[in-house]
Amino acid sequence: MKLRGAIILAAVDWNFLRQRVHHLATGLAQAGLKVLFVENTAVRSPRFTDLPRIFRRLETAIIRPIHSDGEPLPANLTIYSPLAAPWPYNKVAVAWNYSLLNQRVKKFLEEEKLKPEEVLLFTYLATPLALRLIESYPWVSVVYDVVSDPKQVEPRLAPFEEKLLQRANVTLFASATLLEQYRDHTKNPVLFRDGFNTELLEAKVETPPEVARLPRPRLLYIGGINRKLWVEAIKALCEAVPHGSVILMGPVAHGEVVLPKLPNLYLLPLRRKYIELAGVLRTADVGLIPYRPDHYAGNMHPSKLNEYLVFGLPVVATATQELERLAQEFPVKLFYFGRTPTEFAEAGLLALAKNINLQEGKIQILTTQFRWRERVRDFLRLCENN
């Protein structure tokens, strides 16, 4: 039966950092599918530091619509912000959450005149709630997308993820390192790397004044400022470029990371709209991936990597297994690695000295060949063949 719709159980909210789930959801909607994007229903119980996120959910679900600011909604895409009880392994909470979610799914199917046999269930969550929804309808296909090992965040997830890995028609892996980790106990594993958003290059966006006034060189990190961030490496880099600017742009998880107070370390909020990043990336000199060298971060394919490359930025990164693997696959030298904070700072200096323009030649060809538009087509072919 023809694929006409998709229900996406996301691990983030729509107005959070732009990630592959946003690109895929947008691409599916632009391809003509009716898409229901269900915002994060949690993989762990809340902590005190989650209060701001909880308040934002209440505001989104009750007070104002999701598209009143932040990312615009494409046609064919609907956001659902469930007032889910934040205890994903409590039976009573799961039953309540399922009643809410199931009611919204039924409404979506009725409004869009869809049969479950025409709808893809696409999940980033391997929780009891996700599994219950998967088993409740005869979906045309079930796809599980693994962008990191969720058991590193919540070990209780393990038995539920094991079931999903065998139930899903296809399990996608954002990195080759994750694929290797999961391959032996996954029914149908597929490496599916992120695409490149070359539309950012064409955006007519000015550089924000708070960025334009910062001294160069500008070494930029875009992403969540949380447990992944290698603070010691950031500190060493700031000391290595005292007259430059080390910029961290993204939401801060204050309970997970403490940033040093340094004169050339600048903490800036993420732009309200994804397209506005073009004005920041265009005036940066280096893209940073300062991840802690641990199992959790080391297996990831950072989404900001492709954004850096589209704008021709050399990348200074922690020497993780996945990034070192990627460096071997690219046709030119574009990664500069550090295994210690000192080496990370030295890599930053080396990247600045090389002054590479990666927007030309082989890298431009690569980013054009693997645009998100093409990746969405590849995704649809995978779903239709499985």
Rank of each mutant, 00 (worst) to 15 (best):
I66P: 02
H295I: 02
K235Y: 10
R227W: 01
W139H: 07
L28P: 11
V205I: 12
A236C: 00
T127A: 09
P74L: 11
W230N: 05
E256D: 14
T123S: 09
L58A: 15
A347K: 00
E71W: 06
L191N: 09
I289V: 13
I363D: 11
L129A: 06
A203C: 13
Y137A: 00
G312V: 02
R371L: 00
F173M: 03
I54E: 15
L164K: 11
A351R: 05
D69A: 03
I63W: 06
A284W: 04
V21R: 08
T283G: 11
P331I: 13
G312S: 13
K163T: 09
I363A: 09
Y291K: 05
E239I: 07
P302D: 14
Y274K: 12
T186A: 14
K333E: 12
L83G: 02
P138F: 08
P88V: 06
L382T: 14
V252G: 01
L267D: 00
G298A: 12
L33Y: 09
A130N: 06
V12F: 06
V35P: 01
A203S: 12
L172D: 14
R53D: 13
T26D: 13
I134L: 09
V21C: 09
V143N: 14
V246M: 01
P293W: 14
L17A: 15
L133Y: 04
L201Q: 00
D378S: 11
I363M: 15
P86Q: 06
L77T: 04
S45W: 01
V35A: 13
F335K: 08
V211R: 02
Y144I: 04
P293K: 14
A203T: 08
Q328I: 00
E154Y: 14
S175R: 03
E162C: 06
D145V: 11
L164A: 02
K113R: 12
S136G: 15
R183C: 00
A284F: 08
W14F: 04
P159Q: 10
R57S: 03
L220S: 09
P72K: 13
T342M: 02
A351C: 07
S141E: 10
H23Q: 08
L220M: 08
A319T: 04
L191H: 15
A75F: 09
F108W: 04
L382I: 09
R156L: 08
E135A: 07
R167S: 10
G361P: 09
F37P: 05
P314Q: 14
I62L: 13
T60V: 00
A174T: 08
F173R: 12
Q359E: 06
A6G: 10
E256P: 02
R56S: 07
F311E: 15
E162A: 11
E39W: 01
L58I: 13
I7Q: 08
T60Y: 07
R381L: 10
P263V: 01
V257S: 04
E161H: 07
S141C: 15
V105F: 14
K34H: 03
N357P: 00
A10E: 05
V246P: 02
D13A: 02
N90C: 06
R56G: 07
N76T: 09
N226R: 04
A203W: 07
W372E: 03
Y266V: 12
E202Y: 05
